[in-house]
Design a protein around this nucleic acid. Sequence first.
DNA 1: AACATTACGTA
DNA 2: CGTACGTAATGTTG
Length: 891
Amino acid sequence: MTNSARSKLLLIDGHSMAFRGFFALPVEKFATSTGVATNAVYGFLSMLITLLKEEQPSHVAVAFDAGSHTFRTEQYPEYKGTREKTPEEFKHQIPLIEEVLHSLGITTMSKDLIEADDIIATLSFEASQAGMDVLVCSGDRDTLQLVNDRVTVLYPRRGVSDLARMTPEAVYEKYQVTPEQYPDLAAMVGETSDNLPGVPGVGPKTAAKWLGQYGDLDSLLAHADEIGGKVGQSLRDHIDQVRLNRRLGQLLRDVELPAPVAELTIKPWDRAEIDQVLDSLQFRTLRERLFALDTNPANQEATTAGAGGVELVDLERTALAEWLAAASEPLGIAIEGNQLPVDPDVWLLALGRSDGEAVVVDFAQLRTEDEAVLRAWLADEAAAKTGHGVKGLLHALSSRDIELAGVVFDSQLAAYLAHPDQRTYDLPSLAMRYLGLDLTVTDNGGQGSLDLGDESQASALGADAVVLARLEQKQREELAGIDSLELLTDLELPVTWLLAVMERDGIAVDSSYLAELSKDFAAHAENSAQAAYQSIGHTVNLGSPKQLQTVLFDELGMPKTKKIKTGYTTDAAALADLYAKTGNDFLAHLLAYRDTTKLKQTVDGLIRSTASDGRIHTTFQQTVAATGRLSSTEPNLQNIPVRTEAGRQIRRAFVVGEGYETLLTADYSQIEMRIMAHLSGDTGLIEAFNSGEDLHNFVGSRVFSVAPADVSSSMRSKIKAMSYGLAYGLSAFGLSKQLNIEVAEARGLMTDYFERFGGVRDYLHTVVEEARVTGYTETILGRRRYLPDLTSDSRQRREMAERMALNAPIQGSAADIIKIAMLQVGAALAEEKLDSRLLLQVHDELIVEVAPGELERVTALVRGRMASAATLSVPLEVSVGVGASWLAASH
DNA sequence: AACATTACGTA
DNA sequence: CGTACGTAATGTTG
C-alpha cells in the first residue's frame, strides 16, 4: 500500500517562516535562561511539526536566503530597499533553526546571490516533473506562480499555524487569475514590501480584468494603446517599470543545487542529538510533540530492523549452570529493587545475551541449587558482566549478601564518558540512541519495540538485560574510538565499587547535637525576623524575594539593585550594598535571618537524612558533572558550610563512629593551580610551587615587583582572587566587581600577571583554540568534554563555551587525580589489611574513619598515595588533619 | 502536582 | 561580564 502512495515533497522558505514566527510570538516569553531569544525557532519548529504531522511528506527541504545581496539587487539596486534592517534578536535565530533542522536530518539549502524562493522554484519544478506532489510553505506571494495540479502553496494567514492552501482554484478565487498569470498581475500591482512600485490606479481587480481579456502581460502590453481612460494612460506611462517588475518577479527554475530531490528524504532520527539541541534551546513541549510524530519511514525501518525477539529461558527445562557456562560474551544484568544505599533490596534479576536469550529469576521462588549457582557466577571474577549504573546494582545485591565481581562494563558510565554533558543516561534513551530500540513502547505490535512476549515485569527486565548485552558491544567500540576505554575500566568502574562501599558505610553524626543546633538556629532566626519586622513596622515573609522587593523598593524607596527576571535582586551581595548605602537596620536583620535560616535548613536536612544506624549515607553521582567531578545528593555532603564560624559548627556534628578512633581529613593544597602550572608549563608558576614560598606571596611579588616579604595582605588577596579566577575564565570586569576596584585597575592587574606568567596566558589561549578545532577539551587522563558552542554565532553562547573550555581540563584533571588517589588509598588500606575506611570525597578532600591503633600508618598511607596519584611538573601537596569531628579534623 | 525562579551552600 | 554542583522555599502553571 505505502509503495503506491505518491512521494510528497515539502519545501519551506526558512527566513520567511522564521520571520512569521518571530512576530507571532512574544520574544519575552521565548528565551533561554541565558537570555537568548528563541521565539522564531519555536514558531518555526512548531509549524514544521504540524506540517510533518498533517502532511506526512516523504521528502523535505528548507531553503534560506544567502544574504541581502542577490542577482535581483544587481539588476535593480532598490529591490527590497525599503525593508527595515533585520532585528538582531532575529538574526541569531537562523543558525539555531539550521541546527535543529540538521539534527532532524532535514536538508537545508542556500546559495549566493539566489533567494530562497528560487531554490524552492527549482526543486518544485524538478519534483513535479518527477511526478511528486509538492507543498511550498512560504510567506512570499511570488511563489504562487509555482502552483499547479501537483504544487500547492501554503501561505500563512496569521502567525505560523494558520496556513491557506493555495491550489489553482484557490489562487483563482482570490485573484481572479491563474497561477501562471499571477506574476503578470503582481508586476502591474507592484509589491510594496519589495519596493516595487505598481501602476498607479491599477489594483488587483483591474489587472485581473485586463489579463482576462488579453491572456498574458505581453499581449496586454502589445495592445496597451487600446486601453482607454486614465488607467490606460497610467499603464502606458509605467511600462518600463512593469517589465522590470515582471522580470524580478520571475522565479528561477534552473538553479544549480547541491542535492537532487531524491536525496531530500527525511533521515533517521538520532534522538540523543535532537535531545541535545532541544536542551540547549530549553524546549520541552515541542520535544514531546516532535517525538510523538511517526512520519519518518526510514527511521521506522531502522528501528524495526534492529529489534529482535527476547526469549525467556525456562529454568525448569534448562539448567542455569549450563546456560551461564555457555556465555561467550559479557551478560547484561538488570534488576528490580531498591538501588539506594539505605534499605536496599532486590527481588528480580535478569541476565541477558545479545542474541536475545534471557534468564529472569525471582529471588522469592528461586530454587536453592539455582541460587547457589547464581551466587557463584555473580561472584566469579572470570564471568564477564555488564550493567547500567553498577553502583546501584551493588547496593541492591548487598541486601542479600550477594557478591558481584567480573563487571567489565557499565553502559551508564560509558555513555557519560562519551557525552558527559547529557542530562540523563536512562536505559531507554541509550537503547534508542545506540540500537534504535524503543523500550518505552510496551505494546507488542508497536514498531521498534522488543517483542516482549507478554507484558510482565519479568519480560521487560529480560529485555533490559538483553539490551545491556548489545549496548556493551556498541559502546565499547565507541569508547575505544575516543581513547576512553581505559578511563572506564581502570578508573570509573573501580571508583564505582569504592563509592558503593562509602555510601553503604556512611558517616556518623551526633543527632542530639544536630537537634540542639537546629533549635539554636531557629531561635536566632526568629529574633532576627522580629527585629526585621520591628524596623519596618509590619510582618513580611522574609523568605519571599517578591515580597521583599515590595518592601525595599516600593515601601522604603531604596535604590534599585541589579535587574532580574522578576524585578530587582535581593541577594546577599545586593543587600550588603544597600546596607552600606542606606544604613537601614532592616537589611542587617534580613541578612542575619537569611544566614541562620539557611544554616537551619542544612541542619534539618541532615537530621532528616540520618539513617537508623545513626549515620548519613549520601549518594555520590558519578555521571552528573560534565567535568568528571562527583556530586553528592540526598543529602549533599559536599556543601556543608565551612566559611563562617556559625556554619562551621555544623561540621562538629559529623563525628567518628563507634569502634573507630578518629576522623582524618586530607586535602590537596591548591590542586587546580598546580594543574594549571603543569598544563601550561609556565616556568614562573612552576617555580612558585617548587620555591617553598607561599603561592600567592610568590606570584604577588612577581606581579607587583616587590620582595615576597613585602607583599601586603591587600596585594595577596587580589592575586589570590585573580589566580583562581583565571581557571574560570574571569574577565577584567568580573575581577573588578569582585575586588571592588576599577575595571582599569583590574585590567592592569591582569596585564601585569600575564606579563610575568606568559605561559599561563598562552596555555589558556591554546586550550580554547584547540577545542574550537577538535570540538572537545581533554583532561590529563583523556576525559573529553565536547563544546560545540565554541563555534556558535551567538557571542553569549560562544563565550560561555570558551570559559567552559578553560575550566574543564583543570577541574576535570583535578577530578581525575583525586579519583586515582581514592583508588590508591582504597587499595592500600586493603593490602595492609587495615580496618580504617574512606567515608567521603569533597572534590579535593578525602575523609577517612580511622580504626584504633591505625592512625600513624593511615596518615602516612593517605599522604603518600594522594601525593603520588599523579606525577606533574610540580609536587602535589597534601595537608592532613585529625580529630573526633569533621570540624576538629579540619585543622 | 509539576515546574520555574531565586537564593545560597561547597570546591 | 567566573567554573562545577544540590537543595529549599516561594510562586506560578496546569
